[in-house]
């Protein structure tokens, strides 16, 4: 069984590769390369996999899941400039792809055993663009 919980955070970022020239960055990232950054209201959907406990009827306590998402992701990301304030984005370009991978890496240690195992991370950068990551194996 899969269970999905949603949280939101707002953050700014800039997409630039320091190994490229100004022109190359412009060509590759367009307005997302503007040096002072810009922001998004990100929506994060985290899906866990498991079977319901026969006593409680729950896969996991959703309050616990909510606390993990808030502690590991929202507190770190919300109202931050990702490139300047949230490692690894001082050296990794904060594309939605890399954000999904980083969130997976942050959550995986807390959702790796017991009844709720991390299944997938979906990051909406806007309503019209989202990324799914299911771990390295997928």
């Amino acid at each position: 069984m899969l269970i999905t919980r949603k949280v939101e955070f707002s953050a700014s970022h800039v997409c630039r590769n320091p190994a490229l020239t100004e022109e190359e960055n412009r060509a590759l990232f367009g307005a997302a390369a503007n040096p002072h950054g810009h922001g998004h209201n990100y929506v994060l959907e985290v899906t866990v996999e498991g079977t319901p406990d026969p006593v409680t009827g729950m896969v996991l306590d959703l309050k616990v899941l909510k606390d993990i998402l808030n502690r590991e992701v929202v507190e770190a990301y919300d109202h931050r400039f990702l490139n300047h304030e949230v490692p690894p984005f001082d050296r990794v370009i904060p594309t939605p792809e890399n954000i999904a991978i980083d969130i997976w890496n942050r959550l995986r240690p807390h959702l790796s055993d017991g009844r709720g195992k991390l299944h997938g991370v979906r990051v909406y950068e806007t309503a019209d663009l989202y990324v799914d990551y299911f771990g390295e194996a997928q």
């Binding site: 019209d128 990324v131 799914d132």
Partner: peptide, 9 residues
């Protein structure tokens, strides 16, 4: 591998 989804109307 990663999946990217784009929405159009």
């Amino acid at each position: 591998m990663i999946r990217v989804t784009r929405r159009y109307r």
